[in-house]
Amino acid sequence: METFRYIQGVSTLKLDSETCIGCGECTRVCPHAVFELTDKKAAIMDKDACMECGACALNCPVDAITVSPGVGCAAYIIQSWLKGPSKATCSTP
C-alpha cells in the first residue's frame, strides 16, 4: 500500500505511550502497519498511512489510542451533511 498515499498530515490518531502496555494488539488490527512495537511499547511509525478506521482505538485494552473514527467515503460524508450522521449511508453496500 505504500504506492498509495492520501492527503498527508490530517490523521487524528494519537497514542499515549505512558498508558501503553505493549500488548501489540494495535499492530495486529491495523490494516496499514501504522504501529510497531519497540522497547515493549507501541509506536506510531507511519501516521500518514492511517485511514482513521478506528480498529486500534476500539481494540486497545488500556485505551491508550485515540482517533476520530469514520468512513473515508465522499458519498457518505455528503449524506451526513444533508441528512445528519445517523441517516447517512454509502451509495453501495
Partner: peptide, 8 residues
C-alpha cells in the same frame, strides 16, 4: 481501503 475521513 486507504482514504481517511478527515482527508476526504
Amino acid at each position: 481501503p486507504f482514504t481517511s475521513p478527515t482527508g476526504v
